[in-house]
Amino acid sequence: MSRDGWNPYVAGSLTGLVSVGSVWFAGKYFGASTTFVRAATVVEQAVAPEHASTLDYLVKHAAKMDWQAYFIVGIFLGALAAALLFGDFKVEAVPPMWRRRFGNSSVKRGVVAFIGGVIAMYGARLADG
């Protein structure tokens, strides 16, 4: 099967059309980071409910399965379908480029990925993106 994937101009342009269709039919622009705040609300309400209720930002973003939450579920399912269909699915804890430079430790890779996730999401929220 095609491990080379599709031409990025074609896949990207088709994604643009999907975005236009989403705005046209559902009035929704692509976005994902609000759902991570709602997920944080779920976690904090479970482990520290009293503290969570004092944070306006979490109160404002209550747990909710809305358009965006289903959008993210869809992204997972769509990517899974394509990966299985085109023989691209492969369990991998350490990416090749990382392994060549930093070795085979999945913990080392995981810790840096976690820190990266914290910083990237903090920045995304700060920029309102």
């Binding site: 080379d4 994937g5 599709w6 990025p8 896949a11 990207g12 088709l14 994604t15 999907v18 269709g21 989403s22 039919f25 559902a26 929704k28 692509f30 809305d66 358009w67 965006q68 939450a69 289903y70 959008f71 993210i72 579920v73 869809g74 992204i75 997972f76 399912l77 769509g78 990517a79 899974l80 379908a81 394509a82 990966a83 085109f86 691209d88």
Partner: peptide, 17 residues
């Protein structure tokens, strides 16, 4: 709409590598 849009986007992200 959210689910269908996500499936299409996820499929294209995977195909675009």
């Amino acid at each position: 709409y959210g689910l269908v849009t996500g499936v299409l986007f996820g499929f294209l992200l995977q195909r675009g590598r």
